[in-house]
Each structure stands twice: as structure tokens, then as C-alpha cells.
Amino acid sequence: MLRVNFILVLIVAVTAGLAATPALAEMPVEVLAAIKSEASGMPGFQGFSAERGEKFFKTKHNHNLSCSSCHTDNPAAQGKHSETDKVIKPLAPAANEERFTDMKKVAKWFKRNCNDVLDRECTPQEKGDVLTYLLTVHK
């Protein structure tokens, strides 16, 4: 009887543990593949470049802002919102496994941040270059 109870408790504990694990809908490479299929439709597309992505990430565009204004020059480090000082968790997937695992969230933040920094949405080429760069960043 004691043994049955123990097994029951174990089953409940394991199920609860599984339920508590955040569901990662996509992997960053899958998100990159989705951006790539979008970019492939653009004339002259020749693949993504981490080097170009890094330059784009660190260059000041409009309003004296760059991606690194908030995310810092090291995407594996914690950032800080340039206006409110709120802590921003690391952007590089190597340092934060939640990043680039939800296509909807990726689209939402690229739209907002590109509008703030460039006054326009980013092209699939730019997004793919940046994500390619972020995937090369180690902890």
C-alpha cells in the first residue's frame, strides 16, 4: 500500500514538473529558417551574414539609437531600457534559452524596436543577419 502511494506521489510530482516547464514552441534555428524563407523571396538574396548583423546591431541609426543602446554591445549580457532603466534579459540564445523561441514574439519585438530605432520595419535580410549574429554569440 505504501509503495502504491509512493508511486502515485511520484506520478503527480513528475506531471506537475512537466506542466511547469515553459513550452518552447520553436527553436531559434527554426525561427531563422522562417525568416530565411521570407528573405528568399526578395530579389538578390544571397544568404545571411553574422558580420553584417553585428555591424547593424551596433550602428546608430535614427534618434542616435542602435540595438545596443538597450541590449548593450554584448548581447549575452543583461541590458537596460534606455528610457525607463528596466532590466532587459540577455538577447543571445546562448545566454537566455527563451529568446527566439516564439515566432509571434519575435515579430512583435522586431516591429516595435525597428520602428523606434530606424523609423521603419526591418527587412527580412536585416532580421536574418541580426539573428545569425546573435546565434554566434557565446556566453
Binding site: 528610457e83 512583435k108 516591429k111 516595435r112 520602428n115 523606434d116
Partner: peptide, 12 residues
């Protein structure tokens, strides 16, 4: 929200 105190904070 698309012009939220100087930032784009748009939502679906």
C-alpha cells in the same frame, strides 16, 4: 500604442 510616449509598443 504605436506611438506610446515616443516608442512603438503595438500589440496584436
Amino acid at each position: 500604442l504605436d506611438k506610446h510616449f515616443g516608442s512603438d509598443a503595438s500589440l496584436d
